[in-house]
Amino acid sequence: MRVEIWSDIACPWCYIGKARFEKGLAAFAHRDEVEVVHRSFELDPGRAKGDVGLVVDMLAEKFGRSREEALAMEEHVASNARSEGLGYRTEGRDHGSTFDIHRVLHLAKAHGGQDALLDFAYRANFAEERSVYDQETLVGLAVEAGLVEAEVRRVLADPDAYADDVRADQREAAELGANGVPFFVLDRRYGVSGGQPAELFTQALEQAWQGRVITPVAAPDAAVCDTDGSCEIPGAGAQSSQAGAHS
């Protein structure tokens, strides 16, 4: 069975959702027969490559909040991340275009290192003092994930390299009805939207495996990051979303 996950490195709920999905997968009896494929989804596709700023400032401007209120929003997300054993810095994180990161992730996929690079990039972006929007940092992360430095630099120097792959993933997400991430598609029969609890992922995997006709089981407080760059915060007035996938 194949599970496809649409996500963006800038999305905190993708970071949290990946950890929760992996816990749910670990509890699934047929986990060794599940292939996981990561797909590209840019939350801010129109953002210029060199336009990099602080996440807290972006949140304050976007939602018309004070910097203190934006920090409180980040702290709420951070508490969810930490409950999953994930590191999360609420200050000093950058926000920018993720297109180059997605292109390098496709290179990593071709070499079997996509999941490792995604983990390194998430950790650098959310937990460490490293900006994934800096090219040298991105090269270093890719090398850590087992890629050849010269090949990574070649891809970054060629704006067309893997660009079509990134855009194809994004078109497919739209066709499946995904307007936010993380978005999980199980065996092209069932879609789960948001950073759901681990046990819900286990339940969804079991139901997809059985091949039954089912209805979405998304929890009411599921959180996603949407295409305008905003990320929902359960318990803070956000609305959850869910969507089904079909072939």
Rank of each mutant, 00 (worst) to 15 (best):
W209T: 01
P159W: 09
E129F: 14
E61F: 01
L86G: 00
T90S: 01
E172V: 10
N80H: 15
L118W: 11
V52C: 06
L71R: 03
E84C: 13
R82Y: 09
S230R: 06
I101S: 03
P182V: 11
E22V: 08
G64K: 08
A157R: 10
Y88H: 05
V36M: 04
A243G: 13
H76D: 15
F183C: 03
V192N: 02
Y162S: 03
P216M: 09
A163Q: 05
A60C: 04
G140V: 12
Y122T: 07
G140D: 15
G85V: 10
C14W: 05
A19N: 10
L186F: 15
S247Q: 14
Q210M: 15
V3S: 06
H246I: 12
S247L: 15
H246G: 11
T227G: 15
A157D: 09
S230A: 11
G177M: 07
W6Y: 06
S79D: 14
L59Q: 00
S40H: 07
Q242Y: 13
V217N: 09
V181P: 00
V139Q: 05
K49D: 11
L186T: 09
V148R: 13
H106R: 12
P234A: 10
A222Q: 03
Y162F: 15
G194Y: 03
D160R: 12
A121N: 07
Q239Y: 10
D51Q: 14
A150M: 10
A208E: 08
A168T: 11
R39N: 08
T98Q: 01
E129R: 15
V152I: 05
G140K: 09
H102M: 06
A178D: 02
G211T: 11
K49I: 12
G17A: 09
D187T: 05
R154Q: 15
Q207N: 07
F183K: 01
H246F: 13
D160H: 10
H76M: 13
V217S: 13
R212N: 11
L205E: 00
A245Y: 09
R103C: 00
E144M: 13
V224D: 00
E68C: 00
L205Q: 02
P12I: 08
R67N: 00
Y15W: 11
